[in-house]
Design a protein around this nucleic acid. Sequence first.
DNA 1: AGCATCTGGGAGAGCGCTCTATCCATCAAA
DNA 2: TTTGATGGATAGAGCGCTCTCCCAGATGCT
Lengths: 350, 350
Amino acid sequence: MSEVLRSAVNRSTTLEDVARVAGVSRATVSRVINGIRNVDPAIQESVRLAIASTGYVPNGAARSLVTRRAGSLALVVSGSGAEADGPAGGEVFTDPFFGRVVSGVFQALRPQGLHPVLMLADAPEAREQALAYLRQGNADGAMVVSTHAEDPMPALLLEAGVPAVLFGRPDRPLPISCVDLANRDGGRLAADHLHARGCRRVVTIAGPSGVRAARDRLAGFHDAMARHGLPYLPHAEADFTQAGGERAITRLLIEHPDTDGVFAANDLMAQGALAVLRDHGRRVPEDVAVVGFDDSSAATAGRPLLTTVRQPVEEMAAEMTRILLDHIARPERGATSVIFEPSLVVRQSA
Amino acid sequence: MSEVLRSAVNRSTTLEDVARVAGVSRATVSRVINGIRNVDPAIQESVRLAIASTGYVPNGAARSLVTRRAGSLALVVSGSGAEADGPAGGEVFTDPFFGRVVSGVFQALRPQGLHPVLMLADAPEAREQALAYLRQGNADGAMVVSTHAEDPMPALLLEAGVPAVLFGRPDRPLPISCVDLANRDGGRLAADHLHARGCRRVVTIAGPSGVRAARDRLAGFHDAMARHGLPYLPHAEADFTQAGGERAITRLLIEHPDTDGVFAANDLMAQGALAVLRDHGRRVPEDVAVVGFDDSSAATAGRPLLTTVRQPVEEMAAEMTRILLDHIARPERGATSVIFEPSLVVRQSA
DNA sequence: AGCATCTGGGAGAGCGCTCTATCCATCAAA
DNA sequence: TTTGATGGATAGAGCGCTCTCCCAGATGCT
């Protein structure tokens, strides 16, 4: 009796225990649990009973050890290591963009019963930590959101043989899967709209030049504007934050007081522009039209409601997750990339 | 030779391999890696060399199996299962509150080299999944952010013997650790400020009545206002979202057009109020003063800048994490709770 | 010198699970 | 009856690691 008690206290119940109670072998219990091969219905029932009566819970580590599956995926928020630009450290998580990515990842992961483990690799040390974690097989694959084009993470993952999918194309082509937005098209959409509205003295608030998406949005915008006969546009670079947007528009307004249109490379910066324009007594959209990018919650947070280029972040993140799951299930397949099309959402600001 | 090649392809290198290369035993290599007990510096060096030359990476699952440590903590976003109120599903992640929690968790986790695994337990099925994952020992403990007071998760975790810490006190007292804000004090702070400003026809936008924090904020506000001689205040309930705040204030303004002060139980709803007040041509703070709650990014996103009651979410989340780590390290210790004090941040809106 | 203590290292027993190889009935076909 | 199949269950060999013994040699003390 004391033996029983002691073991009940010290050890948690194992397959062995369940097998003993059910009067079958360990292997049979395992088969019932994993639902493979034919097991006599009567025995199945008695095993189930034994599981319930013992309160048995399989041990994840032991299972992982033999199946070589961790049962979790990593969501890596990765920076350059220098972070000269872009929001640093924990601030990344405050960006509505991050929440939308998580949301999309969950949409795709939920049916599979998997959970994402979050990793922040914004400094060399943190990156090594994350990489070690992944190499040890603590996660079956990685989804990477880079905040910087020079991010070495994708290449390192590739080298380590960790299945990975990127949110956003890498700067230099790599044989690695990714989802991305046709950012140039998005810039074009914004340009066409502002031009059609009659804006002729347009400025742009660019994202960090180290971020490919930011460059592409600006390039698309400038190309389209050039086609409309406006080849030279003043622009200021900011860090994708609202405060950065405020500083950028302030500078632009001093240098170009007659501005009648603003394109910001994301909604947060556009919102900063809106706030400063209001401080300066400019009416939006009457005096100055403003177009943002993303269609995040920031777009509808204030007044006027922001006209913006929609990036379907949730869908993109869900697709990223699905691609990763597919890579894990069928490692032999090559890299694939899916490019989403942006769309213009016209609200009040332009 | 073919034997060597095959094993190099099929299996990843193990401790055994490293030991063979270094000419020592498995145990010694393990000791070097984990840095325990004295190992001759010369041997240490040769082991390190062998590790480098073989590209050895320890197997996390095998280690977990014997140490009974997963090396990760769960961050559970948990709902009631019904979700009659409060933001549902993936929307939780869009709330700036969530980002701040994640940020705080990372602050505390980073020095430990641990990573949080995210779990969404908003429906009974998802809750079971999450619970199973935790019981299997895939995480060493759980941090729980409940979106509803009736949330059964805390009690279930307690029952399962999973170390856990809550963000926000449970509705009914449980022997479980938590961090929380003195929400009543926060409500009082807002009331005193509005009253001192001269507001006498004040309305409140409450959070979901199923959320304890929301009730406490409102109660604190009402108590203080009653002490100031204003015992009856109109209020409307909303769901902590901006859209909900907009609906609530719209209703309140119809019923009480002479309103001169608004207290919202969080910044998102306050921002909704700001937007609608602007649509109605009311000036803030001249005609109507508005006080929010949280001091999230939403408070400084628009204009006027929001006067709000600050909740130090990041610090609270970091503390929650530290408490959990402590519980895991010293399971014998009892539950502790840490209550943070709110503070008023006066900006433009009141 | 004799005994106790300490230090550095090895052998090997598990941790709890999966899964292959194997075995034993049972039953259809030759 | 013999010979295979075949369904249903078992035994047992690992998966890769940690950690408790255990041992040999060096050191300290009386």
